[in-house]
């Protein structure tokens, strides 16, 4: 069982590889800047290319979604003009428009699970692996943040979509963040019906005069807008 620091309502955090006995030094109660250390060891040149292709693929998917939604919405509206139950059909048309536009624009698939480099935070949550990841997934869904389960040895991961970070006035870079939650393997099941969940984050950015997304040193100290709520949820769901 991992030894970690108990904070607040019972959440414990340890650094991976420190499960043996030495006290972990992860300041769970502090800011995320401390909780998720810099990841300067990322292979920077290799990062730009997959992000660009991923972004283009997303754009293509979004374009198809929006187009089909618009066509479907238009066709439904046409039917509504001819038919009797115009109210219902008009509502359906509006729903199709909205789902296509907003749904496609919102969901930017997250990075591959192995691209989350750097250290991880470990939380001990109540329940089995599936239950722990399920509760996280439900929380993310409530926050309107899509996530994807990626099972497989050695760990089962839950990877969120990229979260577009709000940019400040005059900012010349835009940022995205994604989170990965892992269970199993090194995140060993703790005793007493508890499961260790390791959390890693990835923030990438793009300048306003470039196309490729890449992790920059300045991104490592960036605190995602989603993190405070996420941290609060993990601490609230901690194993008693």
């Amino acid at each position: 069982m991992s030894i970690g620091r108990r904070v607040g309502n019972g959440a414990r955090a340890v650094l991976p590889g420190n499960e043996g006995g030495r006290r972990a030094l992860v300041p769970v109660g502090g800011t995320r800047r401390h909780a998720l250390p810099p990841r300067c060891d990322l292979p920077l040149p290799e990062w730009g290319i997959p992000q660009v292709s991923s972004s283009r693929r997303v754009d293509a998917v979004a374009a198809v979604c929006v187009s089909s939604s618009l066509v479907g919405g238009g066709a439904t509206m046409r039917l509504a003009q001819r038919g009797k139950s115009s109210g219902v059909l008009m509502s359906a048309a509006a729903a199709l428009f909205l789902s296509g536009c907003f749904g496609a624009a919102r969901n930017i698939p997250g990075p591959p699970a192995d691209q989350f480099a750097g250290q991880e935070l470990k939380y001990s949550l109540a329940g089995t692996d599936e239950a722990a990841l399920g509760s996280i997934q439900k929380y993310l869904a409530r926050q309107d943040l899509p996530s994807e389960l990626r099972p497989g040895p050695p760990r089962t991961y839950l990877v969120t979509s990229y979260i577009e970070e709000p940019s400040t006035t005059g900012a010349r870079r835009v940022r995205r963040s994604a989170y990965r939650f892992g269970t199993g393997a090194t995140a060993q099941a703790a005793s007493g019906g508890c499961t260790d969940v390791v959390v890693a984050s990835l923030t990438i950015s793009r300048g306003i005069h470039e196309e490729a997304w890449s992790p920059q040193p300045a991104d490592q100290s960036f605190e995602s807008t989603a993190w405070p709520g996420l941290k609060e949820f993990l601490q609230r769901s901690a194993c008693p």
């Binding site: 920077l44 010349r172 870079r173 300048g207 005069h209 470039e210």
Partner: peptide, 8 residues
Amino acid sequence: GGAISPEV
């Protein structure tokens, strides 16, 4: 202001 990454 980081509008283009140094490596780019």
